[in-house]
Nucleic acid binder design. Structure first.
Lengths: 263, 263
DNA sequence: TTGCTCCTCACGTCACGTGAGGTGGC
DNA sequence: TTGCTCCTCACGTCACGTGAGGTGGC
């Protein structure tokens, strides 16, 4: 056997990859052995394949998906691929930091029990800016919708003190359509006109950072379940405070969900 | 049908879970429908099951595994279960922050190419403290071994200026045994005596934080591959600088790997 | 000859999502 | 009657790990 060729086990140690990983990369065509014995199926690698293998090991240790690694090895613009991966991971890091904070509160204070009131609300004519988003990016996308809506309102001289209203579907799916609404007279260019239905709503007030809103939302829904009320439409978040002027722990948000007529 | 009972779709909206999730939780016995129609298989939920369902939804959104949620719902000490989950996630967060930093360096500077020299080293008599660890916890475990070794050396009046040596197997497996060694005369209670083999080593010098060590290590292994040298034993990290006195970006570490005799 | 290394299935992991193909309920 | 909702398989996801059962190489 050629002295430059290594059996899979030796090559694995050289690259700090498992034998199973190397076989897997062979199957995927990501890193083919230089030679395969046609009788025994033994895989043999050239030592200079270590550069590629080590790159895979390094990128995998950084949680770069194999598909992206494949692109890089195939000569695609590595910087772009890796930058995209980096951005994904950074967003993920942010999300995890948030969930950790929420988990901490659950730990210290238990599952949320919130005070809920029933109110009758009129229908409202609103201007809406919405967007589709994977559910893990809802906060970011909502933020972008807020910006777009505020710009549209300012351009149309319709800026007002009435709080913005976030609208979130109850059905959870991979893709979700989030929207932000503002009560207006007439139409606002760059937004969609809509009428938010009136009726009876279950309402809870959330005091604190937006990151913890999900706690109150879950508490509100649990309350509905226990009282036998069936929520319909979308969950509304009425942003009573201005987040640019209020410290996060004092932010007031009203959570509202319309209930099915029960009479 | 009893008015308090909800079909799976309605119940799903109430709890912000997908129908698929509810069916999955039923199969696992995590949340059983209050009633199942024996003819049609239709699942019906009592509205007051929403509290449990909402708890699941909330904890799942925090990436708590179903097994842990099951324990909490079954009445296990919720605080302990959640605290364990929290610790896991915090460690994970730290790891991700580190890998992100390494990925950033790869992005700006490309795959590492390191300068490597071949040196002949004598065998060394050392005191060793080792521990088994899952591979994702290697840095933490190594740190603990360092502390234990330094304490043992101090108790035995064997503290010296010779740098500590980290020892890491080349074979990657789920569980890895890491160790930290110090050159000593005689035995040191609380440590294992060992003789580190001498021979020819490929060496590279890493300047910078320990978090970036893997970059230089991978560069060193790639070099070995390209030159046709076969690394054996464990990878050694010689901690030349004292991390308590040196800023991270100036830390000097020598990476060494013994090579098979090729005469 | 004895171990060690290598091979190929086949299945498990985790928490569902995605159809396919069919039926119940208002 | 038409849609909508619900059902049960069966398979896919992602990157391998874990045996089972068998063979090659020194």
């Amino acid at each position: 056997m050629d002295h430059d060729l290594l059996a899979i086990g030796q090559f694995a140690r050289l690259c700090r990859l498992s034998v199973k990983q190397l076989r897997h990369y062979d199957e995927l065509g990501l890193l083919r052995p230089a030679q395969v014995d046609p009788n025994t199926g033994y895989r043999y690698y050239r030592a200079d394949q270590a550069r590629a293998a080590v790159s895979i090991a390094l990128l995998r240790s950084l949680d770069v998906p194999l598909a992206a690694i494949g692109q890089v090895l195939a000569g695609a613009a590595a910087a772009e691929v890796l930058a995209a991966v980096r951005d994904r991971q950074e967003a993920d890091l942010l999300r995890r930091r948030r969930t950790l904070a929420v988990l901490d509160r659950v730990l210290t204070q238990g599952m949320p029990r919130v005070e809920v009131t029933l109110v009758r609300e009129p229908a409202r004519r609103v201007a809406v800016v919405g967007d589709a988003t994977p559910s893990e990016d809802i906060p970011t996308t909502t933020g972008r919708c807020v910006v777009r809506l505020l710009e549209a309102l300012a351009s149309a001289d319709q800026a007002s003190d009435a709080p913005l209203i976030g609208l979130f579907p109850l059905d959870v799916t991979q893709q979700v359509i989030v929207a932000v609404a503002a009560e207006v007279d007439g139409e606002v260019p760059g937004t969609t006109p809509e009428v938010l239905a009136g009726g009876v709503f279950a309402c809870a007030t959330h005091v604190g950072s937006y990151e913890q809103l999900s706690l109150t939302a879950h508490g509100l829904l649990a309350w509905c379940g226990e009282r036998g009320h069936l929520p319909i439409d979308r969950l509304r978040e009425v942003y009573v405070s201005d987040p640019r002027e209020t410290p996060p722990e004092q932010l007031v948000t009203r959570l509202m969900i319309r209930l099915e007529d029960t009479e």
